[in-house]
Amino acid sequence: MLARTANVLPEGPHWRYEPKWDGYRAIVRREGEVRILSRSGRRLEAAFPDIAAAVGAALPPGTAVDGEIVRWSAEGRLDFSGLQRRGHSGPQAAQRLARTEPCHLIVFDLLRDGAAEFAARPLDERRARLEELMHSVGEPALMLGWQTGAVDVARQWFDQMWRVGVEGLVAKDGRGRYRPGRRDWLKYKRRVTTEAIVGGVIGGAGDPRELIVGRRDSQTGALRVVGRTGGLDPAHRREMARLLRPCGGEHPWPPTLPSRWGSSQDYARVVPEVVVEICPDSAQAAGRWRHAVGYVRPRTDLEPADVPTDLSIEG
């Protein structure tokens, strides 16, 4: 189940509020084996053996939960870069990092409990049973996500928890069913971010000074240029250089940039396979973001197919 952006935090007796954790979304199933699935369907248990072991030890067979895998830094902040390092580690490195850089699964929804399916039940009923289930869990890698029905408490979280990397709040109707793929939840963030696909750079794949980003056209499926970042700082240039590959064959974009994107000097096309999180403003023109979009970070947990189409900010 997904969330859509809200510009105003909803209020009312049926609304429930949770922190918006900055991590990897995961559906976790404890059946004959533990299966941890990313939003794109990628298996994650090999990359997070510590979480898989904790789920196997603490949750009864037949349990399915929704949650967020997070990594806390030594300073007590959410560490997305460290989480990505964990998420893309090989089997041997994953075992080592599980000991030196442990992660946690923050559980916030219950989909199945033994033979009982819970997705069609109201959120308040799912939450009550989840709290009972998590009450007896002694595994430190598994945590029950916070939830409140008090809007003043939620606003306090919003005002204070950004210091540790919490992105904002998710608001959910306590009467609502769990409907996979539906954007019935609301996300209320301190800043609006979204995702795009890197299709070109200013500089080169080995030293990108700026990124040219694209989105699929919702009508034709074609990858269109929709934005250009400002200049990347040295750390971000190195970060992206490790992920980008120069285009060695066919590419959906021409070898030169359209004139409206400014100078094409040093423009190079790259394989359009890397997803980045960006922070655009509201100014749009001719199906593109008119001003430079802010670069936030790579999203190696997402595939190009996960990126919204056109200029939608829903991710």
Rank of each mutant, 00 (worst) to 15 (best):
T100Y: 04
R245L: 15
S73F: 10
R290M: 09
V65G: 12
V271A: 11
M134T: 05
W185E: 05
R99V: 09
C103E: 08
R242Y: 01
Q219G: 04
A268K: 14
E167V: 07
D306E: 14
C247V: 08
D66Q: 08
D301C: 04
D173Y: 03
W253S: 12
G67K: 10
G249V: 00
G168Y: 05
V274L: 11
W253Y: 11
E250V: 09
R269S: 04
P246S: 12
R71V: 04
Q160G: 12
R288T: 14
G23A: 04
L130Y: 05
W185Y: 09
P252W: 11
Q265G: 13
C279D: 09
F108G: 09
P255M: 03
P298S: 08
K189T: 15
P298Q: 06
R129T: 13
R43Q: 12
V296C: 08
A283P: 01
R30C: 04
L59A: 09
L211S: 06
P308M: 11
G262H: 10
K20N: 09
G76H: 11
M161K: 10
L169I: 11
R96F: 10
G149E: 13
D310E: 07
A128R: 15
A196F: 07
E277I: 06
A283V: 14
R182P: 00
V107G: 12
D301N: 13
T193V: 15
D281N: 15
G227S: 09
A241D: 02
R260H: 13
A154I: 12
C103H: 09
W157P: 07
V107S: 11
H236V: 01
R245T: 13
A58L: 12
A222T: 07
A241T: 00
R86W: 02
G90L: 08
G248I: 12
Q95T: 11
G168H: 05
R96L: 15
R209H: 13
G176L: 09
R209G: 14
K20P: 03
G90Y: 10
E117A: 14
P298A: 07
Y178S: 04
V151N: 04
I106S: 09
P272F: 08
R4G: 05
D173K: 08
A52P: 11
R112W: 01
I278M: 01
P254C: 03
L111C: 09
A141L: 07
W21D: 03
L142N: 08
L83C: 05
R215Q: 13
W157F: 04
E68A: 01
H135E: 15
G206K: 13
V153M: 13
E303R: 15
D124A: 15
S218E: 11
V276K: 06
R175W: 06
L111Q: 12
E250Y: 10
P272V: 08
R121A: 14
A171F: 03
L144A: 07
P61N: 04
